[in-house]
Write a protein that binds this DNA or RNA. Sequence first.
DNA 1: CAATAGGAGGCGT
DNA 2: ACGCCTCCTATTG
Length: 331
Amino acid sequence: MGSPGCDCVGSTVDLPLITFTESPHSVSAPRAWEEDTKHPRGLISLPKHTVTERSLQGVFRPCFNMFLTDDSSCFLKKSEAVAPLPPFKALEQCPAINSHSLGFVLPSGLDGQVEECCLEQVQSMVLGEVLKDIETACKLLNITPDPMEWNCANVQKWLLWTEHMYKLPQVGKMFQELNGKDLCSMTVEDFMQRSVQCGDLMFAHLDIWRSAACMKQRCTLGDNKIHGTEELWPEADSCCSGQPIHLWQFLRELLLKPHNYGRCIRWMNKEKGIFKIEDSTQVARLWGIRKNRPAMNYDKLSRSIRQYYKKGIIRKPDVSQRLVYQFVHPV
DNA sequence: CAATAGGAGGCGT
DNA sequence: ACGCCTCCTATTG
């Protein structure tokens, strides 16, 4: 099944590269993606890079940013330095990352072997994080990971979600009546035509999903197995069982991903199942996206939570606090 | 003013 | 029947 989304054809375009100014843990933002000319948003021109460096970017870019911030969901917004990604070259080369392609310097005294080993671990972590984030999004949106399989409604969900996650302007209506195949057949220029503001970003996000789907397909075919991928990305049955998700399940999913949603909702006492909704508007919005209810708000969401009082699923904690609830049966 | 609480009717599965 | 969604009034901090 050779889907166009997995059509890992090489291109001659120079891919952008993220760089760290110091070590990945000590800087606040990536400097820029490589561009031949200055990007309209003020990107910096950097030297061209090797094939080894290029081949990873489609998938790994967001992960690099995870190292830079404690919240990966903000990576694109925070960096404000993202150039359009060209058609991805996928992962067939998938080499170990070297410190030069990562753009940071390892502590002195490490020889090449140690460096190689560490970087492979970094690569593995990075890959895992991307797949986990996609898996989470699939669960929460009830869509498949492969954009090629999306119908128009799925595309709209994904667009809404991406807009929300990365605080992008609304572009959903610019992509109406497009299914996943249509979307995947579009070039970055097509995206830019539909949204000058953030077509390039949307294209980049789609590219990441396509790359991940492509890689997963290869993994399931037994080709080029990547360590740990299976457990990181379990089969679709867990995310697309067809059963409509319950609100309490959805909240739990969000709580299980503090990395992504900790700013919206977080555990106060996980053992007791006590959690706090930090941003009621955002949580309601996420729920609305999940249920295709654009008019969802916290007033309605909280009414649904209160329905759980009688059912013994959620209650208010003994010491009642605003926006704090408790699962009656914590995991 | 936003959150809390709960009644009531509607809707899709 | 169930699980919300929506709208509502009243109350609370």
